[in-house]
Design a protein around this nucleic acid. Structure first.
Lengths: 142, 142
DNA sequence: CCCAACTTAGTTGTGCACAACTGAATGGTG
DNA sequence: CACCATTCAGTTGTGCACAACTAAGTTGGG
């Protein structure tokens, strides 16, 4: 454990490392279902909000079409989602979860609880962390 | 600003989004020097510690050789580093910063200060955030 | 009505991350 | 000494991220 480097003082590196570490905690739970973490995030939005445009997925997850388009193509190939042109705006594409896509919600289960435990932080600390991250991100992404 | 989704409750998503947002704050400062954020992290280690093995870079940054090898090849092509076989252990490769690599330290300057300000968090909050991230990451990466 | 500015989704190209693997070097054990 | 598990750097293949671009659709001002 090397704590002497100036790196360790850098919030950005901490975020970078913590984000990858947390994602790697999700991997063993998602891999069996053939999902990646970003794919899981897309499905979570669909589970929660129902059919959603690519545009709104991008707004919610802060990802652009350059990232989402190929990701959605893979989810479509796997049979988890279905694309549909918008009716009153032909530019938009509405992403619909399929039955198998909806079934994944039960199959994957609630990972949040387990992974929150894996960090070993108390509920208070997690709330604090959540709050600080929201504030930091709020400024960074106008 | 949509705060109603269950996503917003997820620490992991917050980390994921905050990490990308912070990295994007570094980008305009690093782009002019032809550096990416991970390349900048490698150089920071070299500036601080001097010549370092690929193995130790990986330990410090939590990256494996699959990520570092091509990254280091690009830094070498740019003339910022130099590779050298270890003397008493022929398996290791020691990464040396070149003169131009060292010169980048002055050229890039101290970004931490500016970017810490960009988040709009107080010093206390940043210290808290640093502490919480260290703790969360400590458990996640044994 | 018309067209220029904008929005939307997709493509292309580059550079991470990471799993799985390769091959060379090392070091301990019989 | 011989052998074998381990370590180290690198390669291969897949899937994000993101900049820059394209093409189709929409919209508002003249």
């Amino acid at each position: 454990m090397r704590e002497s480097t100036a790196l360790d003082q850098m919030i950005c590196f901490q975020l970078y490392a913590a984000s990858r570490a947390m994602t790697s905690l999700y991997r063993p739970h998602l891999d069996p279902h053939g999902l990646t973490y970003p794919q899981y995030l897309v499905l979570r939005v669909l589970w929660h909000d129902g059919p959603t445009t690519v545009r709104d997925l991008g707004r919610t997850l802060r990802l652009d079409s350059g990232t989402l388009s190929p990701l959605l193509k893979r989810l479509e190939t796997q049979g988890h989602i279905r694309r549909e042109r918008g009716t009153h705006d032909e530019r938009t594409v509405v992403i619909h979860p399929t039955d198998t896509g909806l079934a994944l919600q039960e199959a994957v289960g609630d990972l949040t609880q387990q992974l929150v435990c894996a960090t070993g932080l108390t509920l208070d600390e997690l709330t604090q962390l959540h709050h600080l991250l929201s504030r930091a991100r709020g400024r960074a992404t106008p």
